[in-house]
C-alpha cells in the first residue's frame, strides 16, 4: 500500500487538530506517514501514532523557521520523491496552499485546494462559487497534492504507535532562503475556540454598531468562536483574523449565528456550508434570512442578551 504523506501542522510539537483530520483521511487511501518539519517531534510522536501515523519523517533545520515556506516545500518534495508516496495531504491554510503550489510544480503533479472530502482513490470534493456548487475532481498526473479544509472530517484515533521514524537531512537550494522572516509577533490568545475549528460560530456585522459585547457574551455562553463580517472588520470593530467570507475564513460549523449581517455573496461564501444557520437581523428583507434554519427579526442588542441569559439558565 502506498504511503500517503500528511504534513503535520504544529506549534513546537503541539499537534493541531487539522493534522489528525488529515491522518484520518489518509488512512482511507493508503498508509499514513506523518511529515514533521521543525522542532518538537518528541512531543508530537504519541499523538501522531494514536491517530494512525504508521511512519514519521522528521526534518529539523533552522531554515524551516527562518525562511518563508520554500524550505518546507523542498523538504516535502524530497520526501515525496524518495518515498514514492501515493499522495500528499496538507491543511488549507495560506501556508499549506503555498507549500502545495510549490510542491506541485516541483513534482509536476496536479493539485487540488480546499477539499472538503477525500475518497479512497483520492477523488476530492470541493465547494465552489460561493458554495453554490459541489465539484468532485481527481488528480490524473503525478503525485496528487491535496489541501483539505479544517473540520472536513472527525479525527478517529486508532490507538497505534509510530512504527518507523526517518530523520531526513535536506540540502536546501539557494531559492529556499530568499524570503526571510525578520519578526514574528504571536497574537494574544482569546481563550475561545479557533474560528475554523469551532463547532459553533457567532458572527457580528455592521448591525452591531461597533459593540461586539452581546456577540461575545453569546459566544461564551455557547462555547463558540466569534466571527465578523468584512463591514465590521473594515470599520475597525474586530480584527481581520476573525473575518468570515471570501477574503476571510471559511467556516463549516454545526451551528452558525449571523447577527446584524445582511448576507452578501462574499459573506455567504465563507459560511454557506454550515450545518444549521440562525439569523438575528432587524430587517425582515435581509437576504441572509433566505438561508436561515431559524431567524429572529429584531434588534440584536436586545435579542442576543436575552438568548444568552436563557442559554445560561438552561445550562444551569
Amino acid at each position: 500500500m502506498a504511503e500517503i504523506l500528511v504534513l503535520v501542522d504544529h506549534v513546537d510539537g503541539e499537534v493541531k487538530k487539522t493534522a489528525l483530520e488529515l491522518l484520518t483521511l489518509a488512512r482511507r487511501a493508503g498508509e499514513p506517514a506523518a511529515v514533521f518539519l521543525g522542532s518538537g517531534y518528541d512531543a508530537a510522536r504519541d499523538t501522531l501514532g494514536q491517530y494512525g501515523a504508521a511512519k514519521a519523517y522528521v526534518v529539523e533545520a533552522p531554515e524551516l523557521e527562518q525562511y518563508l515556506v520554500v524550505p518546507k516545500a523542498e523538504a516535502l518534495a524530497q520526501i515525496a520523491q524518495s518515498s514514492g508516496a501515493g499522495g500528499v495531504l496538507l491543511t488549507s491554510t495560506p501556508e499549506g496552499k503555498e507549500i502545495a503550489a510549490r510542491l506541485a510544480v516541483k513534482l509536476g503533479s496536479g493539485v487540488v485546494t480546499d477539499a472538503v472530502d477525500v475518497a479512497a482513490d483520492l477523488t476530492t470534493t470541493q465547494s465552489v462559487f460561493a458554495g453554490g456548487y459541489t465539484v468532485t475532481a481527481q488528480v490524473t498526473k503525478g503525485t496528487p497534492v491535496i489541501t483539505v479544509k479544517p473540520n472536513s472530517v472527525t479525527p478517529e484515533a486508532t490507538g497505534g504507535t509510530v512504527g518507523a521514524e526517518d530523520k531526513v537531512a535536506v540540502a536546501f537550494s539557494d531559492a529556499a532562503t530568499k524570503a526571510r522572516i525578520v519578526e514574528r509577533k504571536p497574537r494574544a490568545a482569546t481563550g475561545r475556540p479557533e474560528l475554523t475549528e469551532a463547532s459553533i460560530v457567532v458572527s457580528g456585522g455592521r448591525g452591531t454598531g461597533g459593540d461586539f459585547g452581546p456577540v461575545e457574551a453569546l459566544a461564551d455562553a455557547l462555547g463558540a468562536a466569534v466571527g465578523a463580517s468584512r463591514a465590521a472588520v473594515d470599520s475597525g470593530w474586530y480584527p481581520h483574523a476573525y473575518q468570515v467570507g471570501q477574503t476571510g475564513k471559511t467556516v463549516s460549523p454545526q451551528l452558525y449565528l449571523a447577527c446584524g449581517i445582511s448576507g452578501a455573496i462574499q459573506h455567504r461564501a465563507g459560511m454557506q456550508t454550515s450545518k444549521t444557520i440562525v439569523v438575528v437581523n432587524k430587517d425582515p428583507e435581509a437576504p441572509i434570512f433566505a438561508m436561515a434554519d431559524f431567524g429572529v427579526v429584531g434588534d440584536l442588542h436586545t435579542v442576543l442578551p436575552q438568548a444568552t441569559a436563557e442559554i445560561q439558565k438552561r445550562k444551569g
Binding site: 440562525v278 439569523v279 438575528v280 425582515p284 434570512f289 433566505a290 438561508m291 436561515a292 434554519d293 431559524f294 431567524g295 429572529v296 427579526v297 429584531g298 434588534d299 436586545t302 435579542v303 442576543l304 442578551p305 436575552q306 438568548a307 444568552t308 441569559a309 436563557e310 442559554i311 438552561r314
Partner: peptide, 17 residues
C-alpha cells in the same frame, strides 16, 4: 428556508428554545 419569528420581547428566548 426555516422559520422566522418577529421579536415581540421574547425573540431571544425563542432563539434559545
Amino acid at each position: 428556508a426555516g422559520s422566522v419569528v418577529t421579536d415581540e420581547g421574547d425573540g431571544g428566548t425563542k432563539l434559545a428554545e
